[in-house]
Structure formats: C-alpha cells, structure tokens
Nucleic acid binder design. Structure first.
Lengths: 285, 285
DNA sequence: TTGCTCCTCACGTCACGTGAGGTGGC
DNA sequence: TTGCTCCTCACGTCACGTGAGGTGGC
C-alpha cells in the first residue's frame, strides 16, 4: 500500500482500489462488485486502463455501506439508502429490514431450541429410547376400520394362539398399528409373537412368519386398562415431536401384562413404541 | 391427486411424484432436487418415461428430511444423516450445526439491537441530531501535527479576526478538524466564521471563502475549559457508534462561549458535532 | 382427442469468492 | 526489466424457483 493514508485527511488526491480497500476493510473484489452494482462508484475511472480511483471523501461512505452490510441489509436497499437524502425513506427501509431480521431471529431461535432438545432428549422418566433388533415374528395381518379393531383383535388372538404354541413364543404378545388407522379410520394392523427363525406355522392357519428389520423406538409403558391409553399416546406423541425425529407411521404395542394374565385391570401393562430417528446413544438399549 | 393416500398405510404400491409431494408437503421441484442430490431417491424410475415412483415407506423419510431442512441443516449433512445408522455421527452433525446456528443467532441478535438503536436514537439529553445547512465560511486552513494545534489555533484566530470584521460574521467562531489529526497525529484543520455568500476577503490575508455542503451532525455541548474535552468527545463517540451511522471523519467545533468572551473557564461552551447519516426525522433541526 | 401430469434442460437468485489470462505503472 | 497491482470475463456457491419446450397416461 502506498502512503496515501498519511497524506492527511481532506486531501483530494485520488487513490487506487488497493489503498481504498485497505482503508475501508472492504476487499478489492467487493469494491468492484459495488461499482458494478452502482452502490459505490469510484470517483474516477481511467478510460484507457480501466483503473478505478477513489477519493478520501468516499471512505466515510464506504464505511457506512460496510456497516449496513454487516447488519445484513441487502445491497439494493443499501443503494437506495445511500442514494436518497430523505430520512423518512431511510428509516422505513431500516424498519422493514428490522422486521425481517426479527422474524429470522425467532425462526433461528426455535430451531436452536429444537436442536438442543434433539441432542438432549430430556431424561423424562416415562419415555425411553430403545433399539428393537431385527427379528422374526409369527403374525396375523389385516387392514381394518378403527371401529372394528377390537373385534379383529379378539379373533386374531385366537388364531395366533392356536397356531403358535407357547413353547415357540419368544416374548409376550405384541401388535403393530399403522397410524392411518387413527388418522384416517382405516389402516393395516398386525398381531404378533416373536419367534425363532425357521419356525414352522401351518400356512392355512392365517398366520405368517415375517422378517422384521431393526427399528429405533421411543417407548412408554401404559399402566391399567385401555380406557385411558389415549392419554399415554398423546404424552408419547408430544415427547417425540419435541425431542426426536419421528420416522415411520407404525405404532408398536407390546402386551406385557394383559387380561389373559390377570383379571385386575390396574395390573395391566402395555408398552407403546414410536419409531424415531436415533441421534444420541445416551439412552438404554 | 389420486386416492393413493387412502389405500391404507403399509401398502407397497408406488405413487407418482405429485401424490408424494402432496403427502410430504415437499414441492415436486424439491423432490427432483433431492433425487439429483442423492438425498432422497425415488423407489423406482421408469426407464422409458423417466417418471419417478415413491413408496409409502418413503413418506416417513421425507418427513425427517423436511424437518431437518426446516432446522436449516445443509443438504449434504442431511444426506449424511440419512445415509448413516451411527447415532454418534448423527449427533455430532447436529451438534456442529447447532453451534453454527447459535453463532448466527448471536450475530442476528446484535444486528437487531443495532437497528433498533438506529431507529430509536435513545433520547439522550446531551446528544442531539442537527442539520447544518449549506453555507459559506471565511476560513484559515492548514495541515498540522497534533502537538502544534494550539499554536496554530492562536495564530489562525489572529489572522481570521484581522481579515473578517465582526459585522461580516454570521455566527460564532468554529473549526473543523480531520479525524486523522487524532488518529494519526497529523490532519487538516480549518478555523472559520460563517459569512454571507459574496463577502470579500483580502486574498493575501491567508483567509479563503469556502462553500460548504449541508451536513447532518450528532451534537454535544462541552461545558468548561478544554482540559476535559476528551471525555465529552468519547461520550459523543460512543453514542454515535451505538445510535447512528457515522459518515465523514471531520469533527466540527463551535466556540459558543470561549476565552475571548469571558475569563471564567467554567462558563465556556464548546459545541462538538460529528457527521452522521440521518435516519429518522424525530430530532431537532 | 383433450387436459393434466410428468420430464429435461437451462437460467435466475444473492453477494460476493475464485481462478484464468492478460496488462499497466513504478 | 522485474514484480506488483490492476483489469475483465466467467464460473462456483446454496437450495431450490421459474420458465421453455416437449411428452406420457387416462
């Protein structure tokens, strides 16, 4: 850089784009861009070489532009502000920009909160993240209306119990319910026992053996009869919306303790699982 | 849209891009973009027509992608998250993104604060925004070192008083000082009386008549002698940095009451003005 | 057959940054 | 004369949006 900067302010001598860039903390590229955009025109352009010349008076203008850009004011608005001398127009441009920024601020703030929650799924004692490994199940499947689910359930249990002897079962009875069942009134459902790979089931019984992929579940246990299971569902739904990314629309239910185990409804235990995208490994497996 | 959505979840029938777009609230353009970017590939592409086919299972994936984009996660990171099944890698991507967002949040927040202050220049009783109109001045100018300012001032006053009779003066003595004087130790300075256009001054006296453009000033009055004027300068400087956009590097001083008016330093009044870009019209003119 | 949907280029957005390839000034 | 600075294209960035112009499927 030449010694232009020490010539004393108020001197009218023009300076090169390099000197001007150094004095204004704007890059040469940016200055050329501002020239082309008509936001900050050099005081003079050499017609033969195309060299730009800037004056000391333009330093102040460049600084204001720099500041407005720091505040993310778009270039066209910067141009308007510098071109007008109407304070009212200037302030309305600033005010409008402020509104945009405040909206963006709110959006970013909520995104930050959401990301925080995704990373720190708030140790809610009732909700747990669990990996359900790949497995084989003996299943009775159907597509049913919401109103027919209970009737279908009873008959499916009978079919399943008849076809899968207790010795073949590797866990309690469980079911999977497509969300469409609740959202649209009709959906596919499946009642299942986990079984070993290769187990034989009478193909005429209505029971199939399925290979199911591993799945990550947000899990909650509902206590008592199913009259109030909606509350547990909604609690799980809320937690998942806020603390995880749902993936898949199939709810998993596992009947840990049910009417077939004890007639006392207050002792029943139903586990509800919602498929999620697993982000952290901090929870129970 | 076809009735695909009511076929019941779990059905494997593929659907067109239009149906899929409607179900996922992603635009067709966006889905094609995600296909090209490898973020969400259609389950099937017709080799002859190029038609994309999506399955119901992909809806959940699309929703997760949608959510991650709402959180402003860049597409390459979205792609990585969807492609890996390592929760640790996922969470590190999210955590890194969270950091970026928080930095952006802080930046935007400070910009919003700055814009607020620009629009509402906080009615500080000591600082005032004022328009100094275009005018003519009789001036003695020089480029001096900081240490020589006082000596220069004394001689300049003498020259000016001799050349401009009291009847020609249209206001008190004033001066303009380039910021370089303080910042770099040397700068151009000018001591002036406002005069009528066309006033005659002996060209050999060292006094020139200048036409000065209008300027917007943030103004503060310093009371007392100049021993503590630095404090007043710094107060004005702080206010201007926070509440306005400075434009120009020339400080204006007006000697409302000075040693020539009264020997009592506590009665002296010096007005200091800093050029700013005027945004609001709410202040005094 | 007529709409409707789908397709592929190819360019625009925003504020510059990044080369490529060449030239003026001390 | 050698560096250094400056110049003008022209393309890349980011995540799509917007036509243009054409075609498949009911």
């Amino acid at each position: 850089m030449s010694s232009v900067g020490t010539n004393g302010a108020g001197t009218n001598g023009a300076m090169t784009i390099g000197d001007f860039a150094a004095l204004t903390h704007l890059s040469i590229r940016t200055l050329r861009h501002y020239h082309q955009a008509g936001v900050l025109e050099p005081a003079e352009v050499d017609p033969s070489s195309g060299y730009r010349r800037y004056t000391h008076e333009q330093i102040a203008t460049a600084r204001v532009i720099h500041r407005l850009r720091e505040l993310d004011l778009p270039l066209p608005q910067v141009k308007t502000i510098m071109a007008t001398d109407d304070p009212a127009q200037r302030s309305s441009i600033i005010a409008e920009h402020l509104q945009r920024l405040e909206a963006e601020l709110a959006r970013t703030r909520s995104a930050v909160t959401a990301l925080h929650r995704l990373l720190q799924p708030e140790p809610d004692p009732v909700v747990e993240l669990r990996t359900l490994p790949a497995r084989h199940v003996a299943a009775v499947r159907a597509t049913v209306d919401h109103d027919d689910v209970l009737a279908w359930y009873d008959s499916a249990v009978a079919v399943l119990d008849a076809a899968v002897p207790p010795a073949s079962r590797r866990g309690p009875l469980s079911g999977r319910y497509a969300n469409a069942l609740f959202a649209e009134g009709t959906g596919s459902v499946s009642l299942e026992y986990t079984v070993d790979h290769g187990v034989r089931v009478n193909p005429l019984s209505g029971v199939e053996v399925l290979a199911l992929p591993a799945v990550e579940l947000a899990v909650v246990v509902h206590e008592g009869d199913h009259g109030t299971i909606d509350e547990t569902y909604s609690r799980l739904g809320t937690w998942v919306r806020e603390h995880a990314l749902t993936i898949g629309d199939v709810v998993h239910e596992t009947y840990l303790v049910g009417p077939r185990d004890t007639p006392d409804p207050s002792a029943w235990r139903t586990e509800i699982g919602w498929p999620v995208l697993r982000l952290s490994s901090s929870s129970t497996d």
